[in-house]
Design a protein around this nucleic acid. Structure first.
Length: 262
DNA sequence: ATGGTGGAAGGTCCA
């Protein structure tokens, strides 16, 4: 089963690009973030036309929003209000074999990496802490956790570890919080099972850097994790950076893994 | 130290 995640940054604007990505990668399950469309306006018919019969979405006007597009049936999990907010940052579903898939859009966190000065950073830290707590309390199961986690944990997940230490997405406090999520169910970074940690690997490149891709000042903000029993099922992984070079792209590239599950 | 660009809006807010 091929499972992909992509922060599409407006689903309606980039429907044609989604079609290209789906044709290129043929994912069985495509998880999206920042769809930026309220549920009444979700382009369900067009999505089904791409071959996804089973579609879950949770959207709001202008901001955030997540969706799971699938060729296999999904059972939607009960909604959880992360940080007490109903802001469309998570969708959980059960696959036919009982594996759970969790699609997250973690708050970006603003510019100042200090929760005292910056409410958005405080929200990000609280959200990630809550993820750790939430998964810790869950019963054992095979699970996939993926999405735009807005944190680049490894030195090789950013173009310059030294220059980004005080930049939101690569600060020690965020990486520490993310490591607690990882410990909550002994999650394994599936993409790093294929691409060794020594290798630079990015999934996002700022719109503000006009020299892309020459300078390659990227960060790996988008992740796919699995619980330990699924590790031996990981067959391949890929970051489809070609899509970042298309005209009017999302600032994120799709990330995918092949898992030997049904 | 600063500002750079893009999306949804139709204000600015958010990334």
């Amino acid at each position: 089963m091929r499972i992909a995640t992509w922060n599409i940054n407006s689903l309606r604007l980039r429907m044609p690009m989604l079609s290209k990505v789906v044709k290129a990668l043929s994912p069985d399950i495509m998880c999206l973030q920042e769809i930026k469309v309220e549920d009444d306006l979700f382009p369900l018919h067009d999505i089904q036309g791409l071959g996804f019969e089973h579609v879950l979405f949770r959207g709001m006007k202008s901001y955030n929003g997540v969706a799971i597009l699938s060729r296999v049936p999904l059972i939607e999990m009960r909604k959880h209000l992360w940080c007490g907010k109903d802001d469309c940052r998570h969708l959980g579903a059960e696959l036919p074999d009982g594996t759970e898939i969790h699609n997250f859009y973690v708050p970006a966190g603003g510019d100042i990496p200090d929760p005292e000065q910056n409410d958005k950073f405080a929200h990000k830290l609280a959200f990630v802490e809550e993820m750790a707590e939430w998964f810790r309390e869950k019963e054992p199961a095979n699970r996939i956790l993926l999405g735009d986690l807005n944190i680049a944990p490894l030195e090789t997940d950013v173009w310059s570890h030294k220059q980004l230490l005080k930049i939101v997405s690569h600060t020690a406090v965020e990486i520490n919080a993310l490591s607690k999520v990882m410990a909550s169910k002994n999650w394994v970074d599936a993409v790093r099972e294929i691409f060794p940690p020594e290798e630079n690997l990015y999934s996002w490149w700022s719109y503000r850097n006009r020299t892309w891709p020459g300078s390659d000042r990227g960060r790996r903000l988008d992740h796919i994790w699995v619980t330990p029993a699924l590790v031996e099922k990981i067959k391949d992984a890929k970051i489809f950076r070609e899509a970042r070079g298309w005209k009017r792209p999302s600032d994120h590239a799709p990330v995918m893994v092949d898992l030997d599950i049904s």
